[in-house]
C-alpha cells in the first residue's frame, strides 16, 4: 500500500520524510550522478519540496521507505515552468489547480528496480492515479526519459508530448540524459484500464486514520 503525505498529516511522518530525502540524495546524487543536487546535509530537498507538495511513499511493514514520488500543483513553481521551461516547445505546461506535476520517482530497494520488482512500480503509479482521480486532478505533467515514454505507449494512456526528445545535462560532470516533457491525462477510464493492464485488483492507497493510528493501512472497495 502507498502512503499519501500532505501538509495535513506531515507531522505524523517527519522521520519517514527525512529518510526519504536522504534516500533521494543517495540515489539521485550518489548513484545517478546529478551532482548539482548535492547538499551538505545529505538530503535532496529542492525548490519543489514545499508545503504544497504531496508525497507518495511505498513503506514496508517496518515503515522503511522502498520507493516514492512527489506531486505539486502547476499554480506554483514547477520543473516545467522553470528549469525545463525551454523544453516545452510544442505546448506550455497548463497552469491550473487541477493540473499537477509529478517528479522524483525513485525505488530505494535494488530488488524493486528489476523485472522482479515491477509490482512495486505498478503499485506506486496506480496509487498516484487513484489519488488524482479521487481529488479531481485532470492531468499530471513532468519531464521523463524518452525510453520511459516509449514504454508508456503500451499503456492505455492519453500521454501527450509537450516537447520533443532532447538531450539534457552532460555539463559540469553531470550525466547526459535524453528526455522530454509530457502530460498524462487522468480520467476514470484511464485508471480502470491501467489497473486491468497491470492486474492491480486491490486498492493501492493507504488511509491515514489520524493521531490514534497514523500508519494503519486500510482497504476500501473502489467505486
Amino acid at each position: 500500500m502507498i502512503h499519501v503525505i500532505s501538509k495535513y498529516n506531515r507531522h505524523l511522518y517527519e522521520n519517514i520524510l527525512d529518510e526519504m530525502f536522504k534516500l533521494r540524495h543517495d540515489i539521485f546524487v550518489g548513484e545517478r550522478g546529478w551532482i548539482n543536487l548535492a547538499k551538505s546535509d545529505g538530503r535532496d530537498r529542492d525548490q519543489f519540496d514545499t508545503e504544497d507538495t504531496i508525497y507518495f511513499l511505498k513503506l514496508d511493514p517496518d515503515m522503511k521507505v522502498l520507493g516514492g514520488m512527489r506531486m505539486y500543483p502547476t499554480t506554483i513553481d514547477t520543473q516545467l515552468n522553470t528549469i525545463f521551461k525551454h523544453t516545452c516547445v510544442l505546448q506550455s505546461q497548463p497552469v491550473d489547480p487541477k493540473h499537477w506535476e509529478w517528479s522524483r520517482y525513485f525505488i530505494a530497494e535494488p530488488r524493486y528496480r528489476s523485472a522482479a520488482g515491477k509490482p512495486v512500480h505498478y503499485e506506486l503509479y496506480t496509487a498516484i492515479l487513484e489519488y488524482a482521480l479521487e481529488v479531481g486532478i485532470k492531468s499530471l505533467s513532468g519531464f521523463i526519459e524518452t525510453s520511459i515514454f516509449v514504454q508508456s505507449g503500451k499503456m492505455p494512456w492519453d500521454m501527450r508530448q509537450l516537447g520533443i526528445p532532447m538531450e539534457y545535462g552532460g555539463k559540469d560532470g553531470e550525466p547526459l540524459g535524453y528526455g522530454l516533457p509530457i502530460q498524462l491525462m487522468i480520467d476514470r477510464d484511464t485508471v480502470r484500464k491501467t489497473k486491468i493492464a497491470w492486474r492491480m485488483v486491490k486498492p493501492c492507497l493507504s488511509l491515514s486514520l489520524g493521531e490514534e493510528s497514523p500508519y494503519r493501512e486500510t482497504g476500501f472497495r473502489p467505486r
Binding site: V150, I164, L180
Partner: peptide, 8 residues
Amino acid sequence: GILHTVSI
C-alpha cells in the same frame, strides 16, 4: 527530436 517524435 522531431523524427523521434514521428516514430514514437
